[in-house]
Simulated assay, not measured.
Amino acid sequence: MPAAFLPALTPYLATAGIGWLYYRRIRRSFGRQPWQPRRTIARLVLVCLVALALASAAIFMPHTSLGIAVGAVAGAALGVVSLQHTHAQVIADKRYYTPNQWIGGGLSLLLLGRLAWRWNQGMFSNGPGEAAQQTSPLTMGIAATLIAYSLVYSSGLLLRMRALAIPNMEAGQGP
């Protein structure tokens, strides 16, 4: 493929990449999931960094701070409720969890719906400088909801899965 075609394909490749990320996020909201502690810890570190960026946005863009605060409280509450409805189990000496599909699916739809709304309003067509100047408190509140939910849910799931005993390991038989 000649290099001249790459700029023409960039929007399509970026859209496909973003679509793949959303597919993976939505897929993690449904059905039994294998427990992957390293991935959860990496996700927690990344989400903490994003939470710090969001907190600085609340400081430097004061018109969004109320939306961020309300979103963070709502996300933390949803994280606690979702943890209460998550089932953890050991099957064949491996840990699994089944998340609440309604809460995870609802948050995924909320994110996709807000992105579709912003796209429809032409927010992504003017470049990143224009989008930063017109930051919406609702968008920042939804971002805070998703980040707070991820922080509470991932950290709670990490604690729950570590406490979940594998029967062979308790008996001293090893993994």
Rank of each mutant, 00 (worst) to 15 (best):
G79H: 01
G79R: 02
G79N: 02
G79E: 07
V80M: 09
S82V: 02
S82K: 00
S82A: 09
L83A: 12
Q84M: 03
Q84P: 01
H85T: 01
H85V: 05
H85C: 00
T86Q: 03
H87K: 02
H87P: 01
A88M: 03
A88K: 01
A88Q: 04
A88I: 02
A88W: 04
Q89C: 14
Q89P: 01
I91N: 10
A92S: 10
D93Y: 03
D93I: 02
K94V: 11
R95P: 04
R95W: 04
R95K: 15
Y96S: 13
Y96Q: 11
Y97M: 04
T98A: 09
P99F: 00
P99C: 01
N100A: 14
Q101Y: 13
Q101C: 12
W102I: 12
W102R: 10
W102K: 08
I103V: 12
I103F: 01
I103A: 03
G104P: 05
G104C: 02
G105F: 09
G106W: 03
L107I: 07
L107Q: 05
L107F: 03
S108R: 05
S108F: 13
S108Y: 10
S108C: 14
L111T: 12
G113H: 08
G113Y: 06
R114G: 00
R114P: 01
R114L: 15
L115P: 06
L115C: 11
L115G: 10
L115D: 11
L115T: 08
A116N: 10
A116L: 14
A116R: 08
A116T: 10
W117F: 12
W117S: 09
W117I: 03
R118K: 06
R118W: 07
R118P: 00
R118L: 14
W119N: 13
N120Q: 12
Q121W: 07
Q121K: 14
Q121N: 13
G122H: 05
M123T: 13
M123G: 15
M123Y: 13
F124D: 13
S125R: 01
S125F: 00
S125M: 04
N126T: 06
G127E: 09
G127Q: 03
G127H: 04
P128M: 13
P128N: 11
G129D: 14
E130Y: 11
E130R: 03
E130K: 01
E130A: 13
A131T: 00
A131W: 07
A131H: 03
A131R: 07
A132N: 09
Q133C: 11
T135G: 15
T135E: 15
S136H: 07
P137Q: 03
P137N: 01
P137S: 05
P137H: 01
L138T: 12
T139K: 03
T139H: 02
M140Y: 11
M140N: 07
M140L: 15
M140R: 09
G141D: 10
G141S: 10
G141M: 08
I142Q: 12
I142M: 08
A143Y: 11
A143F: 10
A143I: 08
A144F: 07
A144S: 14
A144R: 06
A144N: 06
T145E: 04
I147S: 13
A148C: 05
A148Q: 00
A148H: 05
Y149W: 07
Y149Q: 04
L151W: 07
V152E: 05
V152N: 04
Y153P: 02
Y153H: 08
S154C: 06
L157W: 02
L158Q: 00
L158H: 00
L159K: 04
L159S: 05
R160N: 08
M161N: 09
M161K: 04
